[in-house]
Design a binder for these strands. Structure first.
Lengths: 234, 234
DNA sequence: TACAATATTAACGAATTATGTACAAGTTTT
DNA sequence: AAAACTTGTACATAATTCGTTAATATTGTA
């Protein structure tokens, strides 16, 4: 498999075939799925490299597929559908789709867009291991587990997600709005003081645990997970 | 301004304004360009973080802009144009555009697509760290961190932004009004003595640190960040 | 030199921003 | 159905920044 596996999720067999032919001609291998439930099973079992998704499908709907996929993975996901409302486009993109193509599509355009998304993704260092480690801190999002000095510390989901997000890009500052967007999700409309409170609760749990890292406030800007690689490797 | 600069290249002032307003509302700062030659100059000089490009523009055409940009940089580039042929779309994407949006556009969709592209780019290791370095001085705006001879020095946001702005164009003089415009934002209306005070506070922190650089007063004009590449590399 | 224009500095208070506590609504567990 | 927990909001308090003012110093020029 030189170019990778594409999972096509679409009820319409015509679309499926057009896409399948073009993709296989280009060297991809193709998996077809005609309803949402089947799609999720195949996604989990076969770990495709790209997903092409129509949101209008039987059983589990496309939006839900989107969410489920993005919970677990960052692979390229392109929505191809006849739902043409701006609202739907925005929803799809916000849920984590990389592109949103309208039916009827021109296969050449679709192939070009797949290529464009792939180009970006190949520049990424996607951490599929949903885990970060610093010194005595381990945040594992597959298990939703926080470990401090080897011991498991209970922490609610939101706090873990927030910590994980901050720790994924150590030392980089995020504004409260960015955090609300990325951790809470765009659908969330609320007070940005909310972030403060969660930060505070995290700090309670992580207080005085390590000299090497901490959650820092950047006054007037936001928060960051600060990590100092003190002592070089010896 | 944590979000970054957008360069809009488009002859049509209506489009420009719609985009500009929406982007600024979201916290981006916007640079406009109405022809290709000007666009390239601004691209090189101002190092934007995102480019929105109409390919139908006077002088150097959009495709060429695309090529020139991609020779030097991997920043997000989105084509927004009324050229609706599949051929053009494919060409644009092949030249390295991340997305291709048709006019007339819905601003909500455009914003969602910008976000989607940004999401991908932020996962890549080519995250542009907004940083300048001179001798023993490091100003890092991604971390909001000022480092002098390796040591972190605390400094409030405004001071950092001012220093970063000055240091981004070493040896170039800025009037107080220009600085108020660029650092404080155009909507700011206040005394230009304000700049003096911030300069003073910066100088306190950076006093006698290096022979190679300093913040100089240009009498009757304004301020500049002066940098002398004395000694060649040793 | 003297004078005017411009720049530096210190100090103060208003405004902005962050934190901590408490509570209520919503969930999940028992 | 009650209990325990999570989550978001409100508000009081604390901390810091920022802009202004005004007094002092410096520079350029007549």
């Amino acid at each position: 498999m030189p170019l990778g596996k594409v999972l096509i999720i679409d009820e319409d067999k015509n679309s499926c075939n057009t896409l399948k032919n073009a993709l296989e001609k280009d060297g991809y291998s193709v998996i077809l799925s005609h309803d949402g439930d089947e799609a999720l099973i195949k996604f989990n079992a076969l770990k495709p490299d790209i997903i092409l998704l129509d949101v209008v499908i039987p059983k589990t709907d496309g939006w839900q597929i989107c969410r489920e996929v993005r919970k677990k993975s960052n692979i390229p996901l392109i929505i191809i559908t006849s739902k043409s409302e701006t609202f739907d486009k925005v929803l799809g993109l916000e849920l984590g789709a990389d592109d949103y193509i309208l039916k009827p599509f021109d296969i050449k355009e679709v192939m070009a867009r797949i290529k464009a998304v792939n180009r970006r993704v190949n520049q990424s260092n996607i951490i599929e291991t949903r885990e970060v480690t610093y010194d005595n801190l381990v945040v594992n999002m597959s298990r939703y587990e926080l470990r401090v000095s080897g011991k498991i510390k209970d922490a609610p989901p939101k706090e873990l997600e927030l910590l994980f997000y901050l720790a994924s890009n150590p030392n980089r500052v995020y504004t409260r709005d960015q955090l609300l967007d990325e951790v809470w999700g765009f659908e969330y409309y609320g007070d940005s003081r909310t972030v403060d409170v969660h930060i505070k609760r995290l700090r309670e749990k992580l207080d005085g645990v390590s000299e090497q890292w901490s959650i820092k406030t950047v006054w007037g800007v936001g928060y960051k997970f600060e990590f100092n690689e003190k002592f070089g490797d010896t």
